[in-house]
Write a protein that binds this DNA or RNA. Structure first.
Lengths: 251, 251
DNA sequence: ATAATAGTGTCTGTAAGACATTATATA
DNA sequence: TATATAATGTCTTACAGACACTATTAT
């Protein structure tokens, strides 16, 4: 905030990149586009775009999200992940990218964006095995860990569920995002006891067996007590918390 | 990443702002500078500066941190907090700021930076009551919550302690950052049982009473089980997790 | 001895994991 | 009826909060 302007660079732009997650068919999926122009033409990438003049970062992210999902934005969970600013991350020049994480209920179908590119839902395993443009593989990785962490400490999992939803719907979200099977009985106990996580609508959904009670999202944003994953065998290692985004918290 | 360049703005710069925390005399303190030039001349602000050409965001933050604290950087805990990009946040024009959070052991004394400004340690309560330049009050607030959350889920608290340190030293850090008294007995049990949080050096420190065993930081980055604050009365409300940085996580 | 600080042990309540059991629907 | 899914209950273990008690130093 107080350096001589001689060190300021000339060509610089700021973009937002979106990691849009959804859960469909019990699988965590991410929205990928196929780039229609260079650089990385024809390669898969995260959706995104430049921040416009006079526009908030959050607004730019919401705008891009609406363009890609064609869903009324205010419904969707959207939060900033972090900034990526390696000087070499974009061959066209210096582009700082602010990554956002969006959690969406199962959306109709892959939607074509306004730009000349094809959009598709990719399973998280497929996406991780795909070579992505720019540093999007790293962004996706950070976003995935952020999402997994969010499910532990916040009520964000419900953002994946279209209302009304059942406890089983919610559990399938956890299982898809964490990639773990959960005990249905213990899961029910935890989510129903957590204050203001979910609220019964009074309705029921009929499939085949016993009808399931329906719920809507409650007002709580944080889960107390948190709904932790397995006793942290995967997390107590020597990872860097600043890089492995908020495994407990951040963004 | 794929918008027509007509919407790109002309004058744009990227800065880093640092929230440098330390614990001295049992109090959480933050490094503030007094601005030597407009805008906000004479007002308190967070230290920071423009990102230089060809420079990584992390590098810019480390550079500023070294300038302000005159301490060999690699020692200090430094992590990105998030980006702030309100178009009106800087009256000079569009400046995107990437905020960083630094956790430092008690440093010698307020150090003057390379720029023409005075630096000082401010108690967190004083700082919160001070009118800060730009949107630095919001950044400080987010950083404080991030730091508090980090102490729950990571071993970051040890970054506040110069090695070797005692369990009491570590407890005083938690008490200062959380602003809560902790039970010494239960605290000791938790930190000594948490895997690889702290390791005994074998040495002892003599003051007056019984000599205290000395410890160094262990290799673990995450605390399992986490060391949670009170049963979340302050957190289970209706806050926005994306704004109130990672109370659980994320950030 | 007394004061001061460090460290251990015990009791109790909460919550999680494992898993048996009951409830209510469809075919 | 058999089958499938939803929901409740029980047992055990782990851990946190509260707090009594012991240990080791300086004065």
């Amino acid at each position: 905030m107080a350096t001589n302007s001689t060190t300021r660079h000339a060509a610089l732009s700021v973009a937002v990149d979106l990691v849009i997650f959804t859960v469909r068919d019990g699988t965590l999926q991410v929205l990928l586009i196929e780039r229609g122009k260079d650089p990385f033409r024809g390669m898969s990438a995260l959706p995104g775009g430049y921040v416009r003049e006079g526009e908030t970062l959050d607004h730019a992210a919401r705008r891009e999200l609406a363009e890609e999902t064609s869903v009324s934005s205010p419904q969707l969970h959207l939060e900033q992940l972090r900034a990526y600013g390696d000087p070499a991350r974009d061959p066209r020049g210096r582009v700082i990218s602010i990554a956002y994480l969006a959690l969406c209920p199962g959306l109709p179908e892959p939607v074509a964006g306004t730009d000349a590119h094809a959009a598709r839902w990719a399973g998280i395993h497929d996406a991780a095995a795909t070579t992505l443009a720019f540093d999007h593989a790293a962004i996706l990785n950070d976003a995935l860990e952020q999402a997994r962490s969010r499910l532990e400490y916040t009520t964000g999992a419900a953002a994946f569920c279209a209302e009304p939803f059942t406890v089983t719907d919610l559990r399938l979200v956890y299982e898809a995002v964490w990639g773990l099977p959960l005990d249905p009985s213990n899961f029910r106990r935890k989510v129903t006891r957590a204050a203001s996580f979910i609220e019964p609508t009074g309705g029921r959904r009929l499939h085949f067996g016993r009808p399931a009670a329906l719920y809507r999202r409650g007002p709580a944003q944080f889960l107390s007590p948190p709904l932790l994953r397995a006793p942290d065998i995967t997390r107590s290692g020597s990872d860097d918390p600043a890089t492995a985004q908020n495994r407990p918290a951040s963004g």
